[in-house]
Simulated assay, not measured.
Amino acid sequence: MEDILRPIYQERASQLNTLGILLVEKKQRSSQTTDSFDAILLMIVKEADQHVYTKHYSYDDKKAAMHIITELQLQEWILLGSNRKIFEWLHHSKILFDRNEYVANLKKELEEFPFHGRKIKMGLEFAKLIRRYVDGKALFENKQYLDAYNYVVHSLHHLARLAIIENGLHPELTVWQQVKQIEPEIYKLYVELVVSEETLEQRLELLFLASEFLIHSRTNIGSSHLIDVLSKKEHWMFSEIMSEPELMPYSVDMSVLLEYLIEKHLLEIVNVETKGQGVFHRCYRVSQKLS
Rank of each mutant, 00 (worst) to 15 (best):
residue 275 K to C: 07
residue 256 V to T: 14
residue 275 K to I: 07
residue 255 S to F: 13
residue 278 G to C: 04
residue 253 D to S: 10
residue 282 R to P: 11
residue 253 D to W: 05
residue 273 E to F: 09
residue 256 V to N: 02
residue 246 E to A: 14
residue 284 Y to L: 08
residue 255 S to N: 11
residue 271 N to G: 03
residue 261 L to M: 08
residue 277 Q to A: 04
residue 279 V to R: 07
residue 254 M to V: 12
residue 275 K to L: 07
residue 255 S to A: 14
residue 277 Q to D: 03
residue 252 V to Q: 03
residue 260 Y to T: 12
residue 251 S to Q: 01
residue 281 H to N: 12
residue 276 G to P: 08
residue 248 M to P: 05
residue 246 E to R: 14
residue 255 S to I: 11
residue 275 K to W: 00
residue 275 K to T: 08
residue 266 L to M: 09
residue 251 S to A: 13
residue 256 V to R: 04
residue 262 I to W: 00
residue 268 E to I: 15
residue 273 E to A: 10
residue 268 E to N: 15
residue 272 V to R: 11
residue 271 N to K: 04
residue 256 V to F: 02
residue 274 T to G: 02
residue 247 L to M: 11
residue 253 D to V: 03
residue 256 V to I: 15
residue 247 L to T: 14
residue 268 E to L: 13
residue 264 K to T: 13
residue 250 Y to G: 12
residue 287 S to E: 13
residue 273 E to N: 07
residue 286 V to S: 12
residue 256 V to W: 01
residue 280 F to Q: 02
residue 265 H to S: 14
residue 260 Y to A: 06
residue 273 E to I: 09
residue 277 Q to W: 02
residue 256 V to H: 03
residue 269 I to K: 05
residue 262 I to M: 04
residue 274 T to M: 03
residue 279 V to A: 11
residue 247 L to Y: 04
residue 286 V to G: 07
residue 288 Q to P: 10
residue 254 M to Q: 04
residue 264 K to I: 05
residue 284 Y to P: 04
residue 263 E to A: 08
residue 270 V to W: 04
residue 281 H to Q: 12
residue 281 H to S: 13
residue 258 L to I: 11
residue 265 H to T: 15
residue 284 Y to E: 03
residue 271 N to W: 01
residue 283 C to M: 03
residue 262 I to Q: 11
residue 270 V to P: 08
residue 259 E to K: 14
residue 252 V to E: 07
residue 286 V to H: 09
residue 246 E to Q: 14
residue 246 E to P: 09
residue 283 C to V: 09
residue 261 L to W: 07
residue 278 G to W: 01
residue 257 L to H: 02
residue 283 C to Q: 00
residue 267 L to E: 09
residue 274 T to L: 01
residue 253 D to Q: 06
residue 259 E to P: 12
residue 284 Y to D: 00
residue 266 L to K: 10
residue 284 Y to C: 06
residue 248 M to S: 01
residue 270 V to K: 14
residue 252 V to W: 12
residue 267 L to C: 10
residue 266 L to S: 04
residue 260 Y to Q: 11
residue 288 Q to T: 11
residue 255 S to P: 07
residue 276 G to Q: 13
residue 269 I to F: 02
residue 246 E to K: 15
residue 266 L to F: 11
residue 258 L to Q: 01
residue 288 Q to K: 12
residue 252 V to C: 00
residue 270 V to R: 09
residue 261 L to I: 06
residue 250 Y to Q: 01
residue 254 M to F: 12
residue 275 K to R: 06
residue 253 D to K: 12
residue 250 Y to D: 03
residue 279 V to K: 08
residue 258 L to G: 03
residue 260 Y to V: 08
residue 250 Y to S: 04
residue 265 H to R: 13
residue 283 C to T: 12
residue 250 Y to E: 02
residue 271 N to V: 00
residue 267 L to V: 08
residue 252 V to Y: 11
residue 263 E to I: 10
